[in-house]
Computed example of a mutant assay.
Amino acid sequence: MIRRDALIRVIESLHAEIAALKANDAAALERATSDKLGHIEDLARLGNGPAGDDLRDLAEEANRLNETCRIYVNLMAANVRRRLQNLTGGVGPGYRRSAGIAAYA
């Protein structure tokens, strides 16, 4: 396996992660994440060396896709937090009235 192939597999796994996040499919997300981590390990085993434009472009694409995954996860976490707060009647630490401090209109 060459580094280009390993990077392409990482990118494919990131696409699968995004699809699983969009579908809210935990099993598919677990598989895609496991695959991605395995491909990253394969890439690490191939070592470092000079990277041409093709490898840099693939690495940048992988980085962009990883950032997209991070954004999806953060949005999902915010939605869960909001739903839990709605269920429990909590409004979050930034909006609670502190004890002993009066609010003035």
Results as ranks from 00 to 15, higher is better:
residue 11 I to M: 02
residue 92 G to P: 09
residue 36 K to D: 13
residue 97 R to S: 11
residue 49 G to R: 01
residue 31 R to F: 05
residue 19 A to W: 00
residue 73 V to N: 15
residue 97 R to Y: 01
residue 32 A to I: 15
residue 85 Q to R: 12
residue 44 A to H: 11
residue 35 D to V: 00
residue 71 I to R: 08
residue 43 L to G: 06
residue 62 A to D: 03
residue 8 I to H: 12
residue 40 I to M: 15
residue 58 L to C: 03
residue 57 D to N: 14
residue 60 E to P: 02
residue 67 E to Q: 12
residue 84 L to T: 00
residue 35 D to Q: 14
residue 19 A to L: 06
residue 39 H to Y: 12
residue 47 G to I: 03
residue 14 L to D: 15
residue 20 A to C: 05
residue 26 A to E: 06
residue 45 R to A: 13
residue 60 E to A: 15
residue 70 R to D: 04
residue 69 C to I: 00
residue 99 A to W: 00
residue 65 L to D: 02
residue 52 G to C: 06
residue 46 L to D: 04
residue 88 T to A: 15
residue 4 R to S: 06
residue 97 R to K: 07
residue 41 E to A: 08
residue 49 G to C: 02
residue 14 L to P: 05
residue 34 S to A: 14
residue 31 R to Y: 05
residue 72 Y to S: 05
residue 59 A to S: 10
residue 97 R to E: 12
residue 21 L to G: 08
residue 96 R to N: 11
residue 68 T to Q: 03
residue 21 L to V: 06
residue 98 S to Y: 00
residue 78 A to L: 05
residue 72 Y to E: 15
residue 40 I to W: 10
residue 6 A to L: 07
residue 29 L to E: 02
residue 52 G to N: 12
residue 9 R to I: 00
residue 37 L to F: 07
residue 66 N to Y: 12
residue 87 L to S: 08
residue 25 D to P: 02
residue 103 A to E: 13
residue 39 H to A: 06
residue 57 D to F: 06
residue 97 R to M: 08
residue 99 A to P: 01
residue 2 I to K: 05
residue 13 S to H: 04
residue 77 A to R: 14
residue 29 L to R: 02
residue 48 N to R: 12
residue 62 A to M: 12
residue 10 V to W: 05
residue 7 L to C: 02
residue 15 H to L: 03
residue 66 N to A: 13
residue 70 R to W: 08
residue 47 G to M: 10
residue 31 R to D: 11
residue 87 L to E: 11
residue 40 I to S: 07
residue 55 L to G: 04
residue 101 I to Y: 08
residue 25 D to V: 15
residue 78 A to P: 00
residue 18 I to A: 10
residue 36 K to Y: 14
residue 98 S to Q: 09
residue 81 R to N: 10
residue 56 R to I: 13
residue 17 E to Y: 01
residue 11 I to C: 00
residue 85 Q to Y: 09
residue 19 A to Y: 00
residue 53 D to N: 07
residue 66 N to R: 09
residue 103 A to S: 14
residue 96 R to A: 07
residue 25 D to Y: 01
residue 87 L to W: 03
residue 28 A to P: 02
residue 5 D to Y: 09
residue 13 S to D: 08
residue 89 G to S: 04
residue 16 A to Q: 05
residue 98 S to N: 02
residue 56 R to E: 09
residue 66 N to C: 06
residue 25 D to K: 01
residue 46 L to H: 05
residue 86 N to A: 13
residue 103 A to N: 08
residue 59 A to K: 13
residue 28 A to D: 02
residue 78 A to T: 15
residue 76 M to V: 05
residue 37 L to W: 03
residue 18 I to T: 08
residue 101 I to W: 06
residue 67 E to R: 08
residue 20 A to P: 06
residue 52 G to P: 03
residue 102 A to V: 11
residue 93 P to G: 02
residue 71 I to L: 08
residue 92 G to L: 08
residue 16 A to W: 01
residue 54 D to L: 07
residue 47 G to A: 11
residue 78 A to F: 00
residue 46 L to V: 07
residue 45 R to N: 10
residue 48 N to P: 04
residue 34 S to K: 14
residue 60 E to D: 11
residue 56 R to F: 01
residue 13 S to C: 06
residue 78 A to C: 00
residue 33 T to C: 00
residue 28 A to L: 07
residue 10 V to Q: 14
